[in-house]
Design a protein around this nucleic acid. Sequence first.
DNA 1: CGTGTAAGGAATTCTGACACG
DNA 2: CGTGTAAGGAATTCTGACACG
Lengths: 100, 100
Amino acid sequence: MSYKDKKVITIGMVSELTGLTERKIRYYEERKLVFPERTPGGTRKYSFLDVERLIDIANKMEDGMQTFEIRKMEQKQLRKKEVRDRMLRGQLNAAFNLRK
Amino acid sequence: MSYKDKKVITIGMVSELTGLTERKIRYYEERKLVFPERTPGGTRKYSFLDVERLIDIANKMEDGMQTFEIRKMEQKQLRKKEVRDRMLRGQLNAAFNLRK
DNA sequence: CGTGTAAGGAATTCTGACACG
DNA sequence: CGTGTAAGGAATTCTGACACG
């Protein structure tokens, strides 16, 4: 994976990068919206992608959306993406089979 | 700048990513080979570019190079790069002037 | 439900120094 | 010169709980 996906940022930096309090960031994890890794000592580690996701979450919260709605929305988009990927792969396979 | 240049990684993670001890990482800073930023509290923050640079430094150290040699070598490469950039910019300007 | 806060403890990092070679 | 280590302190993070609404 790219640097964007490497979980290397502590919660203090994430707080600075997103403008969110640490309390909020931990709460969104409790609500299954972000999934940091942990050091052996238990310290949370986030990726830049997590930072982007948190900013997106913050915007949706400002719009009055609730955490469970955001979670469902993300799951829905994930499923859409999977469908798209499957179709794309199918077309690529079809094109490939025509060639041989 | 890109994510690669954002100083967000603590020394513990850098140690893990590079395989270097924290002692070595701090020493290479003392010898002016890397330049982390600091939080208000004084904690060092590195970028992925710093991590790459440290891996490069580690390789050169293994080859028996000394810190001051590595520093000079990097300065030399920086100057070369500046010359290249200046030439490139000059050629672009020339091409642009021909057009108008 | 979402978030602030005080509490106590544990993990992380910092500096300056001594040691060895 | 480059690096390990023990020392003491400070900054950072963690969890569980109480509070408010």
